[in-house]
Design a protein around this nucleic acid. Sequence first.
DNA 1: CATCTTATTGATACCAAGTATCAATAAGAT
DNA 2: ATCTTATTGATACTTGGTATCAATAAGATG
Lengths: 146, 146
Amino acid sequence: MPSKPINSDNWRAALGKNGFRVTTAQQTLIDIFAHSEYPLSAEQAWDVARQSRPKTGRATVYRMVEKLENLGLIRRVHGYQGCSHFVPTLPEQMMLFICMECGRADYLDRQPLDDLIEQSEHISGRQITESRLQLFGACADCKQDA
Amino acid sequence: MPSKPINSDNWRAALGKNGFRVTTAQQTLIDIFAHSEYPLSAEQAWDVARQSRPKTGRATVYRMVEKLENLGLIRRVHGYQGCSHFVPTLPEQMMLFICMECGRADYLDRQPLDDLIEQSEHISGRQITESRLQLFGACADCKQDA
DNA sequence: CATCTTATTGATACCAAGTATCAATAAGAT
DNA sequence: ATCTTATTGATACTTGGTATCAATAAGATG
Ligand SMILES: [Mn+2]
Ligand SMILES: [Mn+2]
Ligand SMILES: [Zn+2]
Ligand SMILES: [Zn+2]
């Protein structure tokens, strides 16, 4: 779903670099999250994992999701259906668009939004430390089909 | 939390107008949601409700939340802690700021965001039908205290 | 390679949020 | 006052997610 496919070797390396062991369960889950076109819930990832590795445990998936999130490799998105789906984090912070027809996720440049927030900060006296913008609608492909 | 306090009579009226009966359970819950300074989960609202009306049922609260959401009187926000909290809907669509110090919610003009989105729509060929922006940080008061 | 340490795993039991059911209650129309 | 039926609350259930713990397997060491 990221325009440039994620290199899951980097993720394995990141695990190693942080003193984690690189196990088969983790390999499986890394590949699943790194290559999915769609935001995945832990539960969905579990289903996919068991196709190629049937005895994968449920807790293992949740633990791995937490680990990947802490390492900043995936991030949680609050989707238009379901509140705990995960997508790979792109190096540059971008904002997320999810197509409600085909379910695919796509990333948009978030500089304009950041500018907007910075302005708002200054005139309001607030300090804004985190912003979540998610856009929903129809991607260019699906818009044409309809 | 809305700068202008909500008039809960309007909510009662809206219920009546839509063919619903105005019961004591509903009165209680309407007052709770209309006057809270903070986004409330159903569970939290249930706790508050039972203080003044101890035998209020859990399902009743969830049913009422759904009703109020369908009527557009409250809307769900995906908070920085917890994914199903509810705030009164303001007549003009605005975007939400939540202070991570004091937990209070505040509303910001969302015209600038809408402009941004419209621009993005036109250059990308996407159609954006729903946008969720939530900002987190420190409100002007809490920023000073710190 | 064989051994050892310990992070990770999977099974199980558990918990909390949310939903389905259904007999009892109470709006509010007549 | 009576009657109809939307609403309620108790209960049971489901689902997403966590805690526990003995068994497993990375991978470091010799
Ligand atoms: Mn959410
Ligand atoms: Mn347009
Ligand atoms: Zn699409
Ligand atoms: Zn504050």
